[in-house]
Design a binder for these strands. Structure first.
Lengths: 238, 238
DNA sequence: TATTATTGTATCAATTTGCTACAATAACAG
DNA sequence: CTGTTATTGTAGCAAATTGATACAATAATA
């Protein structure tokens, strides 16, 4: 069943850039549609009876299986030429539907972009009913995305980079406890550059937002690193 | 005449926070609607045949009389409860119209917020055909704004403050040539705090984005300040 | 020519950052 | 149990940035 018009707002949608961190690389979730070779960001429409943010959250929850997520809105895309009915037609065709030319889904859309940082290992990627797969792709090696979705990813990356300077960014990308090296790798992946080990450590510790826990014995023949967690209370006070 | 449905996108609008600087205070343009006592931000709808950004630009041009303006998108507001048909009904009533209950203008709207920084003295505030006045109000002394427009102003201020750290902000708020003191006053008004005179001067000069011109003799019994202008080429290279 | 308010910079202390060095391990090999 | 190796935590100092004060150089006016 296709979504019906009276249930959703017309001409507005949302798209989400869902980031995960493998320990080395930043990846995002990308949908692939059946029999079309089309790749797209997870997105959706806004029900008439729900907040825009809630609609986007619900979408991310469904694609990831996570129950608590945090979204950041970064930009709204409203270029005339960003809308293109062809991909939607193809997708419908691949599914065996035939969309009437005046269907609201083929109309022009202004889309609100959100990004989400989540714990890669907690995610159970779940395709929607119109797509046959959803997969992690390294941000340095994305498949060609439909419409302006590559542009949306670029803007999301830009936003996350500037946000990284303001608020602690690893909170959602890492498991509860992590080593200093893991945290640094997150920042390196996001900022796309190497950071000085000692300076990074000194600076993040001086922010006084981490709690130090026991050491982590990995079996490697060297000094074991401490585990840290974010001190949510202190972060609140920033 | 009310705007017709087939010409505009439904469920989406834009609102603009237009900042000007008097030399001492930051002000914004606020519309007042006839016979209703309702105050609102300048905004509008998006024609089906134009970009979102162009629609917003056109709106600001009409309200200010300026031909070249720069807009920054800062947030999109999509709460369910932000939409409220009452103000629109009142405004229509005040104008002698009677809107049918199912009119698209009374439907729920998601609105995209833009802010604009402009030269206060170049502006010729121009009301739209539904309002009887448009005036400058100090951001510290706004009239009660309808719907969530006060929230939109708050978000705009937040955005402009963080943007002030990144790119030179006085470019559009000041006339072509200005003194160092005027520039500092702009930053002080935006950041809402006093800045150290010498440190500010040293820092802004070290950015190497200003061109120094002749001195400005005001008639005051003291050393005359230099006039500066922004060096657009050098700003581009940032 | 003295007075007054303001501007442009120099100066030096305080703070933050870049960079190097080094002691303290954890496992393993002999 | 001792030597080896890779990695971690932190100290120490130089370089750069910022905070705070001081002061000379004016532009009008008395």
């Amino acid at each position: 069943m296709l979504p019906s018009e009276n249930k959703y707002l017309t001409n507005v949608s949302f798209d989400t850039v869902i980031f995960g961190f493998t320990g080395e690389e930043l990846k995002i979730l990308v949908l692939e549609y059946q029999n079309t070779g089309l790749f797209a960001l997870p997105g959706g429409y806004i029900r008439r009876d729900e907040d825009l943010l809630d609609a986007a959250k619900k979408g991310v929850m469904k694609r990831t299986g996570l129950k608590t997520i945090h979204l950041e809105q970064f930009h709204t895309f409203g270029k005339l030429n960003r809308s293109n009915p062809e991909p939607s037609k193809e997708i419908a065709k691949g599914l065996g539907y035939k969309l009437p030319d005046d269907h609201w889904i083929l109309d022009r859309f202004i889309t609100v972009g959100y990004y989400s940082l989540i714990d890669y290992n907690q995610v159970r990627p779940t395709p929607n009913k119109f797509s046959d797969s959803i997969n992690w792709y390294s941000i340095n090696n994305l498949p060609p995305l439909m419409m302006d979705h590559e542009n949306i990813v670029d803007k999301a990356l830009e936003a996350i980079r500037t946000d990284a300077g303001k608020k602690p960014i690893g909170t959602n990308l890492l498991p509860e406890k992590f080593t200093m090296k893991e945290l640094r790798k997150v920042y390196e992946a996001i900022l796309n550059k190497k950071l000085r080990r000692t300076t990074f450590q000194r600076k993040i510790l001086s922010m006084d937002i981490l709690t130090r826990h026991e050491k982590l014995y990995t079996g490697a023949a060297n000094k074991a690193p401490y585990l840290y967690s974010f001190n949510k209370e202190k972060i609140e006070k920033l």
